[in-house]
Write a protein that binds this DNA or RNA. Sequence first.
DNA 1: TGACATTTGAATGTTTATGATTGTATTATA
DNA 2: TATAATACAATCATAAACATTCAAATGTCA
Lengths: 261, 261
Amino acid sequence: MTTIPAGRHQYILSLIEENGTVNVGGLAEELSVSELTIRRDLDQLAKKGLVERTHGGATARRNLPIEPDYLQKASEFPLEKAAIGAAVAKMVEEGDTLYINSGSTTLEVIRCVAALGKKLTIVTNNIDAPWLCKEFEHIRLILAGGVYRPRSHSVSGSLSSLLVSEVYANKAIIGVDGFSPTAGLTTPILEEAETTRAMIEHTVGKVIVVAASNKIGVVSNFKTISLDRVDVLVTDKKGGQLMDQIETPEGLTIVIADMQE
Amino acid sequence: MTTIPAGRHQYILSLIEENGTVNVGGLAEELSVSELTIRRDLDQLAKKGLVERTHGGATARRNLPIEPDYLQKASEFPLEKAAIGAAVAKMVEEGDTLYINSGSTTLEVIRCVAALGKKLTIVTNNIDAPWLCKEFEHIRLILAGGVYRPRSHSVSGSLSSLLVSEVYANKAIIGVDGFSPTAGLTTPILEEAETTRAMIEHTVGKVIVVAASNKIGVVSNFKTISLDRVDVLVTDKKGGQLMDQIETPEGLTIVIADMQE
DNA sequence: TGACATTTGAATGTTTATGATTGTATTATA
DNA sequence: TATAATACAATCATAAACATTCAAATGTCA
């Protein structure tokens, strides 16, 4: 038996693949190392997104294997994001061409929208979108080009706008880092803001902004557009309460995504 | 037991193939050399992309989370492709801007080129490239946009050419499905041919074609360009033998990628 | 033969992995 | 809900693996 960490990791993964779960004590005995070492192994595998850590062991993970820090962000408000994704999916109609920008919330939107089974064209700068859509014949996916940004799993910048300037969509689904009545939509990355703005400018129909409650009232670094171009805000229950306290602009529809549903 | 490096390398590879992992101490004892020598062996194999180096040993190279059929294709000539990738990496210089089209061989090129540690700009339509480059700060990766094609893990078509028409590279590294003195470079997909042609037309330096022996003399469906625009062909040993029988065009340099090296 | 490149091993200081210890958090059971 | 058992997190010391540099042995070519 190999005595190197990587060998243990492989073995643990194969065991999880087979049984669905593993427990710390059993592995420690079987591999003749301390339980502490096993815990560290499992933590490392969990950080890579290969297993799901549980009390006393680990279980198989079904979702995408994606980057740890991104994974963490993606699982920040999983229920809220899933609810928002489902709510947006209801607004999409057969034949739509959708602009969808990058972000963990909009990735969830892509997942829900693609699962509808409707014929759609999705134009996005999210690098994970191909992975989600690879099996769906009914989705025509157009990826924006541009400079790759690992941290945000996206491409952006002026080269992205080049493609966007040639495509017109009838709906835009936009995730933001800040949603504020005064500052409008804001993001922490200049290039992302530019690409998102280009998307909105080339949308002839409704602009739908998705934002969980932790984005409401927040102002990030770079402005995308002001709120008057936004038609619909899809948020969670808590976000709806926050919006009640704010003076909502004219013509903005607020949709509360129900998590119980 | 032979004591030459290449012999050890082959033995180590076979052992990894069989067990999934090897450890430094065990190999050193088994092969009667110092652990330092084993480490150097593993480092060399890792540099060629044949194994994955870990603390204490090495493991079989992790596979990308990619489609089965693509995976199968990618592992068709793994040693040849790794050798070709390493050979191309030697031709790349600090500061280069590279066009690299899609395909399993060129993906291997990206892996080798990215591992060099040199500051580079890579422009590609291969959707798996971000995954390979996500940890490399020294690589600026520009992804071409366009319509996503799941089967080939790429984006292509006229929207891709839009971005390509704005970027000029000083080297192009092109994978093909057919390499023929009479028919030139050919691929089975029209859009891919268009995107590849655009890349070559926007390259001011050398055009390097990579093709394992199973592509030499083959004619696929759609022509990319004729051979007179190709400066270098990088192929494997068997491919070199095939090229000897063919009348090589003027000005075409043929590089044989050595697998033992 | 001599100059040179390649391979190998030794010596060095550094990084990583492991296990013991302590106290805290979580789960199970009465 | 209270309590015991288990799993955990945090810290430290030790050991193993590592990177780096140098020098010796080996092979190659002129």
